[in-house]
Design a protein around this nucleic acid. Structure first.
Length: 334
DNA sequence: TGTCCACTGGAAATAGAGGCCG
DNA sequence: CGGCCTCTATTTCCAGTGGACA
């Protein structure tokens, strides 16, 4: 037996103590300080590469705040999954239990917003993860103008995020910005050993092997934990008592592919067809791509729609493109 | 210099789904 | 049930872009 508590190895797990992010935790806590007086705090923007602890710290800080201070509410919203105005507002209302008798289709979005604005019980903090994935950032403006709501926005790229509607941007400019950088191999090793302590049996893995995992993850904690999880499962499957270096080695590609795979699964058949063609060709001009696509599926969508799909896939980092206008070329990743 | 070409992406129009209400 | 809403997905229409070519 290797795994003691599988929950600890999941992506969503939030540790009780966060290691190697003291400065960031401190800054976030200071920014949120007014909330302890029952006021609205400044919004914050956490940015940095994937797997650097942004989401984890936001949730951890709020969880702690809620525990110490009963009169705060917070809610986590993933903007990848809730990418439009209605969905975000609906989720936000869910967090304060005001969705009663809001019935999905028949209530206008403005009504949702009105309810949020009218809410004045307790300070309400919204964690908006992957906020750059929103189809239309105007919803941020809506939330900005709600008197009691404080936002914690999370994004990979600060510059991409601010590449938005002028009016929304000018409001969000004064958010507290907190930058996260990649973890070093030593830091990652510490994070892993923290997880191991709660999640695995003591002798399953030692520090030098954890360091091997850390080195393969290139500063990304999510990948590091993914490698560990996958290696632990292998050990479990083979009924071994410990995780070997070979198991770790084999798990590296699994873990790295994993994230991308998740996104590919969300594509519909038209998007998948485009994705496959781009990958087969490696590099392809739009006209040719549309033509191949047309032969490949029944009931093809119009070119305009395909352009929308391609944009989306590029945004999700499933494909690449280069060149503007007439010189555009779509490319497979990597 | 003017016209054509191959492509992009915004905006408006349309279709269809699901819920509300009399 | 039928009329009325709103939402999302999709189509239709089109102005804009900048190199090629006569």
């Amino acid at each position: 037996m290797v795994i003691q508590d599988a929950r600890v190895l999941r992506d969503e797990f939030i540790p009780k103590e966060v290691v190697h992010r003291d400065a960031e935790v401190q800054r976030l806590a200071e920014t949120l300080e007014p909330i302890t007086q029952g006021d609205k705090a400044d919004n914050s923007l956490l940015f940095g590469p994937p797997g650097t602890g942004k989401t984890c710290i936001a949730q951890h800080t709020l969880e702690k705040l809620e525990k110490e201070q009963l009169d705060v509410k917070y809610h986590y919203i993933n903007c990848w999954e809730n990418y439009n105005r209605f969905k975000v507002l609906y989720k936000a209302l869910e967090g304060i239990g005001k969705t009663l008798n809001v019935h999905r289709q028949s209530t206008p979005t403005d009504e949702l917003l009105k309810r949020l604005r009218d809410y004045d019980q307790l300070p309400y903090v919204l964690i908006l993860d992957e906020v750059d994935q929103l189809e239309d950032e105007k919803v941020l403006y809506d939330l900005y103008s709600a008197p009691n709501i404080t936002m914690i926005m999370i994004t990979n790229s600060e510059s991409e995020f601010f590449n938005m509607d002028q009016r929304v941007r000018s409001r969000l400019m004064d958010s507290e910005r907190i930058e996260f950088s990649k973890y070093s191999a030593d830091e990652l090793t510490d994070i892993l050993s923290d997880r191991v302590e709660w999640g695995l049996y003591r002798d399953a893995i030692d520090r030098s092997r954890l360091r091997k995992v850390a080195l393969s993850a290139d500063g990304d904690a999510r990948i590091a934990i993914g490698i560990l999880r996958s290696a632990a499962r292998k050990a479990e499957k083979e009924s071994k008592e410990e995780i070997t270096r070979e198991m770790i080695q084999e798990s590296v590609p699994d873990a790295k592919e994993n994230q991308k795979q998740k996104n590919v699964e969300k594509l519909n058949k038209h998007q998948k067809a485009l994705y496959d063609i781009v990958n087969e060709e490696g590099k392809i001009k739009p006209g040719e791509l549309y033509e191949k696509y047309g032969k490949k599926v029944d009931e093809p969508r119009t070119k305009r729609m395909l352009r929308k799909y391609l944009n989306k896939m590029e945004h999700y980092r499933l494909i690449d493109s280069e060149g503007e206008g007439r010189w555009r070329v779509y490319k497979s990743k990597g």
